Amino acid sequence: MIKIAIVTDGPYGERAYATIKPEFETEFIVLEPPEGTFADEVDIPEEELTKIKDADLVITYILHPDLTLDLVDAIHPEVDWIIVGAWRGEGFKNQLLSYGNVTCPENMCDLTENGNPTFDQFVAKFGRPVVRISCQGDKVVDIEVERCSPCGSTQFVAEELKGESTDNLPIKAGLKIQHYPCRAPKMRLFTDDECKKELAANFHKDAFQEALEDEK
Rank of each mutant, 00 (worst) to 15 (best):
F126H: 03
G10T: 05
H179Y: 02
C104P: 14
S149T: 10
E41S: 15
S134M: 11
P77I: 13
A55K: 05
S149Q: 02
D56Q: 07
E78C: 13
E213H: 08
Y61M: 12
P45D: 08
M1D: 03
T8S: 06
K197F: 06
T154W: 00
G100D: 13
N101P: 02
E46S: 15
G91C: 10
I44G: 03
F122L: 14
K51C: 04
G10W: 01
F190W: 11
L199E: 06
R188T: 04
A211N: 01
E215K: 15
I133A: 06
P181C: 10
E48R: 15
T103G: 05
A55E: 10
D120M: 12
S165T: 15
A211L: 02
F28H: 07
Q155N: 14
G100K: 08
P65C: 03
L199P: 00
P117G: 15
L31F: 07
A201I: 04
D192C: 13
K216R: 14
E23W: 05
P22C: 04
K21M: 03
Q209T: 05
N101Y: 06
E25Q: 12
W87N: 01
G91Y: 09
W87R: 03
P33Y: 13
L71W: 06
K205I: 05
P185R: 12
N114W: 09
V130D: 11
K176H: 01
K51E: 09
K51G: 01
K125L: 07
E23Q: 12
V84G: 10
P170H: 10
I6E: 00
L169P: 01
G152F: 04
C104R: 14
S134D: 01
A173T: 08
K53E: 10
L67S: 04
K197M: 11
P65A: 03
T112F: 07
T166P: 04
V123S: 12
E90P: 10
D43E: 10
A18F: 06
A201N: 03
